[in-house]
């Protein structure tokens, strides 16, 4: 029974959302709006699960002396930010905003910036002319990179045109084919969930 109720709820809401999409009726529009409102409200509550789990797991690991310093810093951040927001608010010049601008944003930007370094190392390691296909890929990458480098090369104009051609034809064709496959995969997975054929999201029953 504890599996049947979620399946019935899932099917009912799936069916309602599917049908309302095809209707302009005022009742249909208001049902849609109400469900969307509840969707946002439910989402906000799920964050509580995350917070509780984060604290519980970190405390357990701290007590077992696993990665202690990192977890203590993580927990302090988790507690201090909402604490500051509650006491001093989140307006400009508040301690919360100071932390956001001077700690959170630079740290996140730093991790994002790592991407550039990893692109460099991955290019060095991965772009090898091992086969004909790999050589074509390598050639295309070099053309795109050169065309975006603002170099005063003799054939810059043609290079940009070639780069745009690669982007608009071979690259986009492959991308579209992959997108169609993904779209169909998403469609069948969603239908399986709505029709109750797919039950892994309930925690198993493969």
């Amino acid at each position: 029974m504890n599996r049947q109720i979620p399946l019935i709820v899932c099917f009912s809401f799936g069916l309602v959302m599917f049908l309302q999409y095809f209707s302009n009726h005022t009742i249909s529009r208001s049902v849609n709006l109400a469900i969307l409102d509840y969707w946002q409200i439910i989402f906000a509550f799920t964050l509580i699960i995350g917070v509780v789990s984060f604290i519980k797991v970190n405390l357990t690991k701290i007590s077992r002396r696993i990665d202690r310093p990192y977890l203590i810093v993580g927990l302090l951040g988790m507690i201090s930010m909402p604490f500051m927001a509650l006491i001093w608010g989140i307006k400009a010049d508040s301690p919360f905003m100071w932390m956001f601008e001077n700690v959170q944003a630079p740290m996140a930007s730093t991790v994002f910036a790592l991407l550039a370094f990893f692109v460099a190392s991955a290019s060095f390691r991965g772009f090898r002319a091992r086969s004909l296909q790999a050589s074509i890929l390598l050639g295309a990458a070099l053309i795109i990179l050169l065309s975006r480098s603002n170099l005063p090369l003799p054939y810059t104009e043609h290079l940009s045109e070639l780069a745009d051609w690669i982007r608009n034809y071979p690259s986009m064709t492959a991308r579209r084919a992959i997108l169609i496959g993904i779209g169909l995969g998403s469609l069948t997975t969603s239908l399986r969930v709505i029709l109750g054929i797919e039950r892994t999201w309930l925690g198993g029953e493969r």
């Binding site: 290019s123 772009f127 090898r128 002319a129 975006r148 480098s149 170099l151």
Partner: peptide
């Protein structure tokens, strides 16, 4: 930011060429 970006592109081109020289 364009100068830095262009320089980074050239650096990656250099790395790709270097990687292939080592490979061959």
């Amino acid at each position: 930011g364009m100068l830095a970006q262009s320089a980074a592109h050239l650096y990656i081109i250099f790395l790709v060429i270097l990687g292939n020289i080592f490979y061959f």
